[in-house]
């Protein structure tokens, strides 16, 4: 009995510790500028009434109306800030992340088929090469990749951020291949006898059966592209092409960080879509990441 209570306490402590940074960021974005810099540990802002400047309590409707109004003001101030163009960053991030996710899912679905459901010489050797590419540090590629994209005329455009995804990625191909291997081979043979080509087998049978893993690949790629900071930092050079991850950092450094309530409101705008994706598919995402570490 005592052990269960101890576990419960530990679980709550862990949850609180990992939540607190995000909660604190959100809480700061709810503060009016005058009290954004506070030294207390209070999560919710202190609000004084205009009439007698006494503190409003959480049980008064006026308290929450004020908080909601501050929230709206802060987010509106960020969204329309002259120092940054968050609507455009948001559009760019969405565009890049969607195109990346679609390209990665399609190409990985096709390539994984060649790596799992067809038998041919050299297949397993090339698959080992594919796995080895996951070890290549990005720092080695940074300078020469920039030059490749420069030659292609892609520097300063969003293309380098999504186009490579249309050629598959090692981790995604690996995940999809592991899933394909669990689909019984007899299905292919039966379809073959019915006169179905490999292409037909992929689209009519394998892909519909693999919807879970393909969803994980699409979501992970979406989040990965949404979060990417180094790519935009290197390949983009004017503000209209910035993504949120980069635009946020520029917004913060141009502010010097002083109005922390506004900077945190911007932070929340960048983080929120990822949290929404996570809420929708947390189970699939966690299992996808966990399965990467297992077997082989």
């Amino acid at each position: 009995m005592r052990l269960t209570a101890l576990r419960g306490l530990l679980l709550s402590l862990v949850a609180a510790a990992f939540c607190l940074p995000l909660v604190w960021m959100l809480a700061t974005s709810l503060r009016p500028t005058e009290t954004a810099l506070q030294r207390s540990l209070a999560i919710l802002p202190t609000i004084r009434s205009d009439a007698d400047s006494g503190e409003l309590s959480w049980f008064e409707a006026r308290y929450w109306l004020t908080v909601a109004a501050t929230l709206r003001d802060n987010f509106a101030a960020v969204w329309t800030s002259p120092l940054a163009d968050f609507p455009i960053y948001f559009k760019n991030s969405l565009y890049v992340s969607l195109l990346s996710a679609i390209g990665m899912t399609l190409s990985s679905a096709i390539v994984a088929f060649g790596f799992s459901r067809l038998r041919w010489r050299g297949r397993d050797g090339l698959f080992r090469v594919l796995l080895a590419t996951m070890m290549i540090p990005f720092a080695v590629l940074m300078a020469p990749t920039y030059l490749v994209f420069k030659q292609l005329g892609w520097i300063g455009t969003l293309v380098p951020l999504w186009a490579p995804c249309w050629f598959g990625g090692a981790f995604s191909i690996f995940l999809v291949r592991q899933f394909y291997m669990t689909i019984p081979r007899e299905l292919d043979e039966a379809a073959m006898l019915d006169g179905c080509s490999n292409w037909g087998i992929l689209w009519r049978m394998i892909i519909p059966l693999s919807r879970p893993v393909l969803t994980v690949v699409a979501l992970l790629q979406f989040v990965h592209s949404w979060n990417d900071f180094v790519g935009p930092l290197i390949f983009l050079n004017h503000e209209e092409t910035y993504t949120l991850a980069l635009g946020l950092a520029m917004f913060q450094s141009s502010h010097g960080g002083t109005p922390w309530n506004l900077v945190m409101a911007a932070d929340v705008i960048v983080i929120l879509p990822v949290i929404v994706v996570f809420m929708l598919a947390q189970r699939a995402l966690i299992e996808g990441v966990a399965s990467g570490g297992l077997k082989e």
Binding site: F18, N227, A245, V263, Q282, L285
Partner: peptide
């Protein structure tokens, strides 16, 4: 809850931690 921070964009996490 423990997994969620791994999905937070690194620049957003960095700015949040600066604060």
């Amino acid at each position: 809850v423990v997994f969620l921070p791994t999905l937070v964009p690194v620049s957003a996490a960095a700015i949040g931690w600066m604060w």
